[in-house]
């Protein structure tokens, strides 16, 4: 029943650039871990990981060209994951 959406082709060049960016950020995150920022370190590491993850998601997994349904549902999943972790801290942080 569904119509085939026009398939978007991601060029090798784009993929290559994304790959280089990912490698660069791996270097950055290793470098960042050598600087002692106290409690900030883990947040910096997570931030860089999130950016890397977003690149994989958007280009390698083609999320950039997907429908709104997939965007929404993916964000819902991430939201639920965030709830799982953060709401547990209502207990852990105040015990």
């Amino acid at each position: 029943m569904g119509h085939q959406p026009s398939q978007h082709i991601i060029e090798y060049k784009t993929l290559g650039l994304v790959f280089i960016a990912l490698l660069a950020m791996t270097g950055v995150t290793i470098a960042a871990s050598t600087i002692d920022l106290g409690k900030l370190n883990v947040w910096v590491a997570l931030l860089i990981a999130s950016v890397k993850g977003s690149l994989v998601l958007l280009y390698f997994m083609h999320m950039k060209y997907e429908s709104r349904v997939l965007w929404l549902s993916f964000l819902t999943t991430v939201f639920f994951l965030a709830i799982m972790i953060s709401f547990t801290f209502w207990d852990i942080a105040f015990r």
């Binding site: 791996t26 995150t29 290793i30 871990s33 050598t34 002692d36 370190n41 883990v42 590491a45 997570l46 860089i48 990981a49 890397k52 993850g53 994989v56 998601l57 390698f60 997994m61």
Partner: peptide, 18 residues
């Protein structure tokens, strides 16, 4: 890709904790 994505988070959380 998802397996890769998860590793992207595992890597700093275990190997780079400071």
């Amino acid at each position: 890709h998802l397996v890769d994505l998860i590793w992207i988070f595992i890597f700093p959380l275990f190997y780079l904790v400071i």
